[in-house]
C-alpha cells in the first residue's frame, strides 16, 4: 500500500491551516427521543439556511468559464510564442498571453487555495499573494514584449 505523507495529516496541519473540515459534511448528533443516530449537515452560515436559499453560483460560473477560455487561449498562443522565431506575430501572442497566463494562474491557484486552506485569514492572504503574483506576471510579460525579446524569447534563451 502506498502511504501518503504524514505532513498531510490533519493533526499536523490543522494548527497552521485550520481544521481539516470540508464545507459540507455529514456528522452524527444525539437524538433525545431515541437511541439512534441522526445525521446533521455542517452549514457555513445561518442566514442562508434559514432563508432556504442556495448560494448564488453566478460568480463561480463566471470564474469557471474564464478559466476554461484562458486555457484555450494558452493552448493557442503558447505554441506560437514558444515555437516561432521572434516577430510581430509572437509579440501579439505575448500580449495575449499577458492576459491569459495571469488569469489562468490566478483562478487555478484560487481553486487550490479553496481546497487546501481553511483559515479565513490565511485564505484571504494567500489569494492576495496570488493576485500580486498575477500582476507581476502581467507586468513582466508586457515588459519582455516591450523590450523586443518576448516571453518565448526569454524561455528559449535557456536553450541557446
Amino acid at each position: 500500500m502506498l502511504k501518503s505523507s504524514k505532513l498531510f495529516q490533519p493533526r499536523l496541519v490543522s494548527g497552521i491551516f485550520g481544521g481539516y473540515v470540508p464545507n459540507s459534511s455529514i456528522v452524527p448528533i444525539n437524538n433525545k427521543s431515541g437511541n439512534i443516530l441522526i445525521q446533521s449537515r455542517y452549514a457555513g452560515t445561518t442566514t442562508k439556511t434559514m432563508d432556504k436559499k442556495l448560494p448564488d453560483p453566478s460568480q463561480a460560473i463566471i470564474s469557471h468559464k474564464a478559466f476554461h477560455y484562458s486555457t484555450f487561449g494558452l493552448v493557442t498562443c503558447l505554441p506560437v510564442s514558444l515555437l516561432l522565431p521572434t516577430s510581430g506575430l509572437t509579440a501579439i501572442a505575448d500580449i495575449l498571453l499577458s492576459v491569459f497566463i495571469p488569469t489562468h494562474f490566478f483562478l487555478g491557484m484560487n481553486s487550490v487555495i479553496n481546497d487546501y486552506i481553511y483559515q479565513s485569514f490565511l485564505r484571504a492572504g494567500s489569494k492576495l499573494l496570488v493576485g500580486g503574483c498575477a500582476f507581476i506576471i502581467l507586468g513582466g510579460i508586457l515588459t519582455m514584449t516591450k523590450n523586443g525579446v518576448g516571453l518565448g524569447g526569454t524561455i528559449k534563451a535557456l536553450w541557446k
Binding site: 513582466g140 523590450n147 525579446v149 526569454t154
Partner: peptide, 22 residues
C-alpha cells in the same frame, strides 16, 4: 506559476533583463 513569477519579477524589477540572468 512560481517560476514565471520569478522570471517576470526579474524582468520587471531587476537591473537587467531576464535573458541577462539566464
Amino acid at each position: 506559476g512560481v517560476g514565471l513569477t520569478a522570471v517576470c519579477g526579474a524582468s520587471l524589477f531587476g537591473a537587467h533583463d531576464s535573458v541577462y540572468y539566464l
